[in-house]
Amino acid sequence: MTDFKQIENNLKKEAKRLLEAGEVTVVLAYGRGYDEKHSMPFAAKTSADVEKLVFNEYCNFNMARYLMRYPCGTKIAIAAKAADSRAIVQLIQEEKVRREDLIILGIPAYGMKNQKTDEVVDSKTTCGLYNPPLYNILLGEEVHGQPVVSPYEVLAEYEAMDKEARWAFWKKEFDKCIRCYACRKACPMCYCDPCFIDQSKPRWADKAPQSPGNMMYHLTRFHHLAGRCIDCGECSRACPVDIPLYLFHKKVAKECEEMFGQAAGMKLEDKPVLVDFRVEDSDKILE
C-alpha cells in the first residue's frame, strides 16, 4: 500500500523548502476539510501555511484545475498524482501553463478512496498509471508490480449493449442532470471563457435543465474533451446526481487512442489529437 504519512511528511518538507527559498510563490496541495474524509484543495503561500497541508487516501482532487488561476509567470509548486500530472502535461501542450513556471511534486499511488463509497479506486482503472509521467520531485517510492488491467476494461459492458439500451441508459442519466456545471468547474481541461453553454449568440443549447439541452451540453462537452480528457474522474466525483460521465469520456479517449495512436497528456512534445492531423489518416475512421 501507499505510505500516505510518508508522502505527507515529504510534501510538507518540500513545500517548506521551496517557499522559504523563494523558489515558488504558492504550493498547491491538500488541506484539511471539516473532517479527515473531506480534505480540500489548499494553496500554501507562507511557510506557516505548510503545517496545514495534509495528504491522505481521500485527497483525490485534481489540483491542475487551479493552475490557471494564477497569472502567467507565477512560480507554482503543485502536488500531482498520476492523473493530475497527465493533466498538467496536457495543459502545457495546450500552452495554458509553462513548464518552467512549475515545480511538480509527483505522488505515486495505487489508488485513492472515493469519499462517497469509501472504496479504493485503482488508479490503473482510471488514468491507467500509478506514477506521474512528469514530475520534478517524487514524494514517495515509485509503484510497481501490480497486475496490468486496461483502463478501458470497464467499457466492455456498455459497448456490448444494444444501441437502444445504451440510448435509454444515457437518456436516463442525462435526464438527472440539474445543470449545476460542477463537471465543468471541476474539470482541469474545461477552461474556455466563455463556455459554449454560456453563450447566447448563438445559443447552442437550451439552458433549462431538461432533456434536449442536457443532451446537447454533455455531448458537446464530450466532444470538446476528445483527445484531451486525461481520465482523472473529477467530473463524476463532482457530480451531485452521480452521472457516470467518466464512462463517456473514457470511451471517447479510447476511440481517439485507437484512431490516432496517442493518449492525452503523456508526452510534452505531443500535440492534442484534434488540433493535429496526419495526411495518412485513414478514411476508415469515418465509417
Partner: peptide, 16 residues
Amino acid sequence: RRRLAVTKKILEFAGL
C-alpha cells in the same frame, strides 16, 4: 476528418 470521426463515435456511443 479527425473531428468528424470523433463526432461519429460520440453519436454512436450515445445510442444514435
